[in-house]
Design a protein around this nucleic acid. Structure first.
Length: 802
DNA sequence: TTAGATCGGGG
DNA sequence: GTGTACGATCTAA
């Protein structure tokens, strides 16, 4: 019969001495199905120096745990390694686990072995061009199986370009008795589940909240959770840091309670992957940890310095979590404080709601990565960028008939780690206040250098001067398109095509996500080429990339000068110029002129116009500070880089003051008001009327309190919190305010509970928070620290425009 | 200065 | 599952 299925999970099963691929997915009618592809052969390649070795390999066998492992067959194949022909022998095995054993037995008798560590299921998808989440036409017949869903045996298949929509995704979140991660000791108290159409709070004490279902015991609650997941049967499950907390906790707690959760297509429940960090899977129901997706997709663009759900949801969705004190959950549970427990139950459900909405928001990015890399969403969710790049390259090896290069052995890794790259070029700014700034930047500088100069392992030549790395005359790259440079070019051109489409449909969120994902992937290539564990590692390629980067930016800086633009600042791929007497149009024409001479895909872009900008001096007064500036655009929006206003560990008052000073100076052009404002703040602080919430300093305890030799303010506060019986350990965020009493800073620090309004130490907040945050800014416009403090007479300002 | 350890997220 | 993160930041040697 004919089936149109979008696969979203995969595994394999041994069947005697052969192996079957098992796919899970959803058909066009919304029915979950299992598809079995029988008799897929695992294999690896060897390079031999002598034909007679092939016959020996064919007869080779090892015994392992009473089972004789034999070679199923051998086959001569011709492939390419970095574009060069190579004769190889394909060694076909019976079972995936035989591959390592046979390779170990053979490797010393042959020149080289390849592709012995490529995951069987991943290879299946790539070799067959079956892209997860995309519908595939199958001819299949229904068969009996041990799986809990209808199972079919694949007879033939034909992939399509159509992607599945409307997946049913369930978000889950648990609340436990205590913060301490101890599933043997602390019970799970509440479990919340939600998606668009289903909301549920499971618990085992009566709580008067909506959607609550009270179970008889914790064990019953967990069994009921399994039942709900079976009944609702979502396509995917999601949570926030659920790989690291919720699911491992459920698994270990179930074990401690002696119960079995029958879940997944095989009924075997959650499986914890053993790694440095755990990961949890459910057969046939991909588990997406949104925390990992956040870090990979929008993490860099977020202003928040933490990836806590509260901060991320606040910034991405514009919604804060309920304000509850989770330290009170355990005690409230003990005394069955229904009113308080209701708050925790609501909070729990809200967490799943935020998680679900984050999933909805970020799913297009995951979908795009799946489309590009061709692996399952579960894997793509957890792969580091180097891995995504590598598997993207691996996917293309089939078309290019290239051999997948081996991972470096530990000796190679050691050597690679010693290689140091020379970084980017930075033009230090002259501290000052500037007007009419224009910023240029190179569109995808490193990726376009790699493609435009064909920087690939396969095109790398040494010892001859032809096509030159500007810094190293011994390295050059041939004209024949290299493998990695070619496939990177495809990513960049696809992205450019999508960008043109976006101009026609500016509101298309899906298109935006695709473009952003392609950018992330393209930008990862440079890092990948210099990443010690990369299969296609090429130090010379990475080194030449930054060399060309420095070369081109310096060339443009020079041309700026020749064309009457004053360069204020430059870092890596961007140049800040002040227009002076020139107009924005002149800057646009300049960019066009530059681009006429740029090779390949390289392109300088006009990033924007900023009426005002400020650059400050470095802390050590060694000149202008790198990566510390603030620009104001035509709408008055501030672009703050590197300052306290965008960093943690600083009180709110210092951050607010900094932002306000920037606004007054850059947007209102009112330096006097800025000075008055800071002076007023000094007075306010001195008078004791600044509210405590603006004075809180947050520091994280990095280890248990006892292990600190140097007792800093946060440690002193933590010690007293412990004395009061609060649960404080490594990782706890300590919030404190510096108060008047005491001689040293650790005695002056008080926790929020200990402090009264107005008890803070004005001197500390003036000298150590406020002034350092604004001092360098005022220095630029000619005011000294003393003037800010009202201790000196104002000196002449003069002209401070740079 | 370098090597080794810890941490992130989560109650 | 033909696998075992990673990069930043702190501490100890």
């Amino acid at each position: 019969m004919k089936l149109i299925v979008a696969p979203y999970d995969i595994t394999y099963r041994e069947d005697g001495n052969s192996v079957n691929i098992v796919l899970f997915g959803k058909d066009k009618d919304g029915r979950k199905v299992c598809l079995i592809d029988k008799g897929i052969d695992p294999f690896f390649y060897v390079q031999v120096d002598n034909e007679s070795v092939i016959e020996r390999i064919k007869k080779f066998a090892v015994t392992h745990q009473d089972r004789e492992i034999t070679v199923k067959d051998v086959e001569k194949v011709e492939k390419l390694i970095s574009g060069k022909k190579i004769d190889l022998v394909k060694v076909i095995c019976h079972l995936p686990r035989d591959v390592a054993k046979l390779r170990d037995g053979i490797k010393d008798a042959v020149l080289q072995t390849y592709e012995f560590d490529i995951s069987f299921t991943r290879r299946y998808l790539l070799d067959r061009d079956i892209t997860p989440l995309h519908y595939c036409n199958f001819e299949a017949k229904e068969i009996k199986s041990s799986f809990t869903i209808p199972t079919y045996e694949i007879e033939s298949y034909a992939p399509t370009e159509e992607i599945i929509k409307d997946l049913n995704v369930m978000a889950l979140d648990i609340e436990t008795y205590a913060k301490e991660y101890n599933p043997e000791k602390h019970p799970i108290l509440i479990i919340a589940l939600s998606n668009m159409k289903y909301k549920k709070i499971l618990t085992w004490k009566e709580i008067p909240a909506e959607h609550v279902e009270v179970c008889d015991s914790e064990a019953d609650m967990l069994l009921r959770l399994a039942e709900i997941l079976r009944e609702e049967d979502p396509d995917m499950i999601t949570g926030y840091f659920s790989d690291g907390f919720d699911f491992p906790y459920i698994v270990r707690r179930s074990r401690a309670l002696g119960i079995t959760l029958e879940l997944g297509a095989d009924g075997k429940g959650f499986r914890i992957g053993r790694g440095n960090e755990s990961e949890v899977s459910l057969l046939g129901m991909p588990h997406i940890d949104i925390y990992k997706l956040v870090r990979k997709t929008v993490g860099m663009q977020l202003e928040t310095y933490t990836y806590k759900l509260d901060d991320v949801a606040n910034e991405v969705l514009g919604e804060k979590k309920h304000d509850v004190d989770l330290a009170k959950l355990g005690p409230a549970w003990d005394v069955h404080d229904k009113k308080l427990l209701k708050e925790f139950a609501d909070y729990n459900l809200q967490d799943t709601d935020l998680t679900h909405r984050l999933f909805e928001r970020l799913y297009p990015n995951l979908e795009e990565m799946v489309k590009i890399v061709g692996l399952m969403p579960y894997d793509v969710n957890r792969m580091a960028f180097s891995q995504l790049v590598e598997w993207f390259i691996i996917k293309q090896t089939k078309e290019f008939n290239e051999v997948i290069l081996n991972k470096p052995v530990s000796q190679e890794v050691t050597g690679r780690k010693l290689e140091r790259l020379k970084g980017a070029f930075v033009f230090k700014p002259t501290p000052g206040l500037y007007k009419d700034l224009v910023v240029f930047d190179f569109m995808s500088l490193y990726p376009t250098i790699i493609t435009s100069h064909n920087l690939s392992l396969s095109s790398l030549r040494t010892g001859k001067k032809t096509y030159v790395n500007p810094d190293n005359q011994e390295i050059w790259f041939g004209d024949k398109p290299g493998f990695v440079a070619t496939i990177l070019e495809r990513i960049i051109t696809t992205r450019m095509k999508l960008k043109r489409e976006l101009r026609k449909n500016p509101g298309d969120a899906m298109l935006k996500a695709r473009i952003a994902t392609l950018k992330l992937l393209a930008n990862s290539f440079y890092g990948y080429l210099g990443f010690y564990a990369a299969r296609w590692y090429c130090f010379e390629c990475a080194e030449t990339t930054t060399a060309f980067g420095r070369h081109y930016i310096q060339k443009v800086i020079k041309q700026c000068g020749e064309n009457g633009f004053k360069v204020v600042y430059s870092d890596t791929d961007s140049i800040f110029i002040s227009l002076g007497k020139k107009k924005q149009d002149d800057a646009h024409s300049f960019v066009e002129k530059i681009n006429e001479k740029m090779p390949g895909l390289m392109e300088l872009e006009y990033e924007g116009y900023y009426p005002r900008g400020i650059f400050v001096s470095a802390k050590d007064d060694s000149g202008g500070a790198k990566k510390r500036y603030c620009l104001a655009d035509e709408k008055g929006k501030l672009k703050i880089t590197g300052f306290e206003a965008v960093r943690r560990n600083v009180s709110q008052i210092a951050k607010e003051a900094q932002e306000h000073v920037f606004d007054l100076i850059l947007n209102k052009h009112d330096e006097k008001s800025a000075l008055t404002f800071v002076k007023k703040m000094v007075t306010d602080l001195k008078s004791g009327k600044v509210p405590s919430e603006k004075l809180i300093i947050t520091t994280r305890l990095s280890k248990p309190v006892k292990e600190y030799d140097n007792v800093g303010p946060h440690v002193a506060v933590a010690m007293r919190m412990i004395e009061r019986g609060e649960n404080v350990g490594a990782g706890t965020m300590i919030q404190y305010i510096i108060c008047k009493e005491g001689k040293v800073i650790r005695d002056k620090a008080k926790s929020l509970q200990e402090v009264d309004e107005g008890e803070y130490d004005p001197t500390y907040y003036i000298d150590n928070q406020l002034i350092p945050a604004v001092e360098k800014i005022f220095e630029v416009i000619g005011y000294s620290k003393e003037e800010l403090l009202g201790e000196a007479k104002q000196t002449g300002l003069g002209s401070y425009f740079g």
